[in-house]
Simulated assay, not measured.
Amino acid sequence: MQSIKFLLQRLAAALILVLAVIVLNFLLIHFAPGDPVETLAGAMGGMTEELRTQLRHAYGLDQSLLHQLGVYLSHFASGDLGHSYYFNLPVTDLILQRVPATLLLVITSLVFSLVVGTLLGVLASRRPNGLLSQAINVISLVGYAAPVFWTGIILVILFASVFPIFPTSGMQAAVQDGGVMAHALDVAHHLVLPALTLGIIYLAQFSRMARASMLDVLGSDFVRTARSKGLSETTVFYKHALRNALLPIITITGLHFGNLFAGAILVETVFNWPGLGRLAFESILRRDTPTILGILFLSACMVVLANQLTDVCYRIADPRIKR
C-alpha cells in the first residue's frame, strides 16, 4: 500500500512537471527572434504579401500569444501535437518515424557507458595507486574533456578513412540483401560509431563515479566488519561493497539519460543518423515551431520517466529508503 501511494505521488508530480515544461517551452520559443513564415518564404525563394497573411492566419500566428497558448494546450489535451510548417505532416507522425532510431542509439550508448564505465571504475578501485588505476583515470579524463562532435570526427577519420571498418552515414545500407538477421546486422554495423561517440563521454563519468564510490564504501565500518568475520576478499568486494557503491551510479544514470538526448543532436548530425536529434536540428534551422515543441515534449517525458525509474531502482537497491 505504501509503495502504491509512493508511485501515485511520483506520477502526480511528474504530470505537473511535464505540464510546466510544455508551457515554458511554448513561451520561450515564441519569445525567440524569427518568423516561421519568413523562413518558409526564404526556403521557397520568395512569397507574396497576400500568401504571407494567409499562412499567418492558417497557423494562428496573427493571434495573441495567450490565445495561441490556449489553442495549443487544447489541441495537446486531445493528443494533437500540431502540424509541421516545413514538412507538412502531423508532428506526431514525424516523431514516431524518428523515435526508434534515437531510442536505439541512446539506449545502446547508455548501456555501453554504464556497463563498461562501472567495470573500469571497479577495477581501478581494487588498487587505487596501481598502474591500471592511473591508466583508467587518464582515459576517463580524456573522454570526459573531449567534445562529442570532436570525438565523432576523430572516430570517423580513424575507423572510416585510416581503417575503413565501419560506415559513417545513415542507419542502414541503401541496398538490402538477405532477411531480418542481415538487416539487424547491417543496422548494428552502422550503429557502432554513433553509439561509441555518444557513450565515450558518459563512460568516463561512470568510471570516475564508480571508482570514487567503491573507495568510499571500502573504507566503511561494515566492510571492516565483514573482513573481520573471515569472509574472502572477493565476497567482501563484490557482494557487500559493490551493491552499496552502485547507489550513486543509479542516480547519475537517470540524470544522464536526458543529457544523452541532448548529445544525440550532435551525434546524429555528424553521422546523418535518422533520429529525433537530426529532426530537431532541421526543425530549428527552419523555425518549425510545432515540430520543435513536439520533440521537446517527448524529451521532457523521457527525462521525467528516467528519473521516476531511478527512484524505483534506488528503493530496490537500498531497502532502507522504503522506511
Rank of each mutant, 00 (worst) to 15 (best):
S3R: 14
I4Y: 13
L8F: 14
R10Y: 01
L15D: 01
I16S: 04
I16P: 04
V21A: 14
L24R: 04
A32R: 02
L40R: 08
E50N: 02
R52H: 09
T53F: 15
Q54C: 00
Q54E: 08
R56H: 06
Y59L: 14
G60R: 01
G60K: 00
D62P: 02
S64W: 08
L65G: 10
Q68G: 10
L73P: 02
S78D: 12
D80S: 09
H83N: 13
D93F: 05
D93I: 09
I95P: 10
P100H: 11
T102H: 01
V106Q: 03
F112R: 10
S125P: 05
S125H: 04
R126W: 10
S133I: 04
Q134E: 12
A135Q: 05
N137E: 11
G143F: 04
Y144I: 15
A146I: 14
A146S: 15
A146D: 09
W150D: 09
G152C: 12
I153G: 10
I157P: 00
A160P: 02
S161D: 00
S161F: 14
P164V: 13
I165W: 05
T168W: 11
T168E: 12
G170Y: 10
Q176Y: 13
D177M: 10
V180Y: 14
D186L: 14
H189A: 09
V192H: 11
Y202D: 13
L203I: 12
L203V: 06
R211K: 15
A212M: 07
M214D: 00
L215A: 01
G219Y: 05
D221Q: 08
V223H: 01
A226G: 11
R227I: 07
L231D: 05
E233L: 06
T234Y: 11
V236Q: 01
V236M: 07
F237V: 03
K239A: 05
H240D: 00
L242P: 00
N244S: 08
I250S: 03
T251A: 13
L255C: 01
F261A: 07
F261T: 06
A262E: 10
A262R: 13
I265D: 02
F271T: 02
N272Q: 12
N272M: 07
W273T: 04
R278W: 10
L279E: 11
R286H: 08
I292K: 03
L296E: 07
S299Q: 14
M302S: 12
N307S: 12
T310E: 03
T310N: 06
I316Q: 04
P319M: 09
K322W: 00
